[in-house]
């Protein structure tokens, strides 16, 4: 049983949902990313998604696009991410999953990427532009190395296709809450709860929901129907607000890590209210 499986089996024993924050590696700099991982883990995050910045993030809204661009100012690449994870892995056992677009993996070399990701202490990958049909080579590369490749389903995915994807996904199934791109939304679609219930009928694997979720009250409602809740843009916005810009230079403000930690703590509390 790997870290992700262990985490979800524990979550399912208690009456709560896993809180899964997303941050972009290297936004505003890589030292801050390392501190954020440790602080978010301390505040109750159950799994952390680490974005590998990409020049053309076509599944992302303006908030995460801007975050990627900030990270790319320092030319953050996969090797930097692995190095950082290796360091942080000595201090925490929280499951860490890389979220990145396919081309940077492909250029690194799929086998080498899987090898280095596993060796650094990462637990899995989420690749939003790699649907099941194209994922064969990547899944083969991660399988022997103990990494999970987590697949996504969307509200417009047919039941038949959900079943197929659920069979192939490892770790958990990522349910995209809206037909759309990432980014905080004041209101989640009413069909979301029904949609999640339907998905839960189709698979026994853990299901985590993401895209658009930003507020504790949304989380407490969702915690009843899902195993995990992913929050990205709302956290990125907070990072952005506490980043100091001096000319072309970006650096973390004095309260950045503390403020993000507090927010994550608040979100985690909300995951418990449902049960």
């Amino acid at each position: 049983m790997n870290r992700i499986d262990r985490m979800f089996s524990q979550i399912r024993k208690g009456k709560e949902a896993a809180l899964i924050p997303f941050i972009t590696t290297g936004d505003p700099d890589i030292a801050t990313t390392e501190k954020l991982i440790l602080e978010m883990a301390r505040q109750g995050a159950d799994l952390i998604e680490l974005g590998l910045p990409f020049s053309d993030p076509l599944a992302d809204g303006p908030t995460i696009q801007a975050s990627s661009q900030r990270a790319l100012r320092h030319n953050i690449n996969a090797r930097d991410l692995f190095g950082m994870v290796r360091k942080v892995r000595k201090k925490t056992d929280i499951p860490l999953v890389l979220m990145g677009y396919y081309n940077p993996l492909l250029q690194y070399g799929l086998s080498a990427f899987a090898e280095d990701a596993a060796a650094s202490g990462l637990d899995g990958t989420i690749i939003p532009d790699l649907p099941m049909e194209e994922a064969g080579k990547w899944i083969a590369a991660v399988k022997t190395r103990g990494l999970d490749n987590i697949l996504l389903v969307a509200p417009n995915t047919s039941a038949d296709r959900v079943r197929k994807i659920a069979r192939v996904t490892q770790g958990f199934l990522y349910y995209v809450s809206v037909t759309g791109i990432t980014g905080a939304r004041a209101e989640l679609p009413a069909e979301l709860y029904q949609g999640l219930n339907a998905i839960k009928q189709l698979t026994k694997k853990p299901v985590a929901v993401g895209f658009g979720i930003s507020m504790p009250n949304q989380i407490s409602r969702l915690a009843v129907v899902t195993d995990g809740i992913i929050v990205g843009s709302a956290i990125i916005k907070l990072i952005e607000a506490h980043t100091i810009k001096e000319g072309d230079d970006l650096r973390a403000g004095p309260d950045l890590v503390k403020k993000v930690g507090e927010f994550v703590g608040e979100l985690k509390e909300a995951t418990k209210k449902g049960g």
């Binding site: 076509l58 599944a59 396919y102 939003p128 532009d129 790699l130 649907p131 049909e133 194209e134 697949l151 996504l152 389903v153 969307a154 509200p155 417009n156 995915t157 047919s158 296709r161 994807i165 995209v176 037909t179 759309g180």
Partner: peptide, 11 residues
């Protein structure tokens, strides 16, 4: 070629 798109676009 192929279809490297987010799942939402597959249908």
């Amino acid at each position: 070629g192929g279809r490297f798109v987010p799942e939402t676009l597959m249908p």
